Simulated scan of single mutants.
Amino acid sequence: MLTDYSLKMPKNIHAGEHALEQLEEILSDDIQKIVIFTDKGLLKLGLVDVPIKIIEEKGINYTILSDIPAEPNYHQAQTMIDEFKKEKADFIIAVGGGSVMDVAKLASILATDEYTVKDLLENPLLAKKQVTSLMIPSTAGTGAEATPNAIVGVPEKDLKIGIVNSEMIADFVLLDGRMTKDLPKPIAASTGVDALCHAIECFTSAKANPISNTFALEALDLIMNNIIEACTNPDALDAKRKMLLGSFYAGIAITASGTTAVHALSYPLGGKYHIAHGVSNAILLTPVMKFNEPVIKDLLAVAYDRVVKDGDKELSVDKKSTYMINQLEIIVKVLEIPTSLKTFNVPEEDLDGLVAAGMEVTRLLVNNKREVTPEDARNIYLQIM
Rank of each mutant, 00 (worst) to 15 (best):
Thr3Ile: 13
Asp4Lys: 06
Tyr5Glu: 00
Leu7Ser: 11
Met9Ala: 13
Glu17Tyr: 07
Glu21Ala: 02
Ile31Met: 11
Gln32Cys: 11
Asp39Phe: 13
Leu42Asn: 06
Lys44Tyr: 06
Val50Gly: 07
Pro51Gln: 11
Ile52Gly: 05
Glu56Asn: 08
Glu57His: 09
Gly59Lys: 10
Tyr62Trp: 10
Tyr62Gly: 06
Pro69Gly: 01
His75Met: 09
Ile81Met: 09
Glu83Gln: 10
Lys86Ile: 09
Glu87Thr: 06
Ala89Trp: 00
Asp90Gly: 01
Ile93Trp: 01
Gly96Leu: 04
Gly97Val: 06
Gly98His: 06
Asp102Ser: 03
Val103Arg: 00
Ala107Pro: 01
Ile109Gly: 00
Thr112Met: 04
Asp113Cys: 04
Glu122Ala: 15
Leu126Gln: 14
Ala127Cys: 13
Thr132Ala: 00
Ser133Gln: 02
Ser133Arg: 00
Ile136Tyr: 09
Thr139Tyr: 11
Glu145Phe: 02
Val152Trp: 01
Gly153Asp: 10
Lys157Pro: 08
Leu159Asn: 01
Ile163Asp: 01
Val164Pro: 13
Glu167Val: 00
Leu175Cys: 13
Met179Ser: 01
Lys185Glu: 01
Ser190Asn: 12
Ser190Phe: 03
Val193Lys: 14
Glu201Trp: 09
Pro210Gln: 04
Phe215Asn: 06
Ala216Asn: 02
Glu218Tyr: 00
Leu222Asp: 12
Leu222Val: 09
Ile228Gln: 13
Ile228Trp: 09
Asp238Phe: 10
Lys242Met: 11
Met243Val: 04
Leu245Thr: 05
Gly246Pro: 03
Ala250Pro: 01
Ala253Gly: 05
Leu269Trp: 10
Leu269Lys: 03
Leu269Thr: 04
Lys272Asp: 09
His274Ile: 08
Ala276Val: 12
Ala276Asn: 12
Val279Met: 12
Leu284His: 04
Leu285Lys: 02
Met289Cys: 04
Leu300Ile: 10
Val302Pro: 14
Val308Arg: 02
Gly311Asn: 11
Ser316Tyr: 13
Lys320Gln: 04
Ser321Ala: 14
Asn326Phe: 10
Glu329Ala: 15
Ile331Gln: 13
Val334Asp: 15
Pro338Tyr: 15
Lys342Asn: 12
Glu348His: 05
Asp350Pro: 11
Gly353Trp: 09
Val355Gly: 04
Val355Asn: 13
Met359Gln: 05
Arg370Thr: 11
Thr373Glu: 14
Glu375Pro: 08
Asp376Glu: 15
Ala377Met: 07
Ile380Val: 11
Ile384Ala: 14
Ile384Ser: 03
Met385Tyr: 11
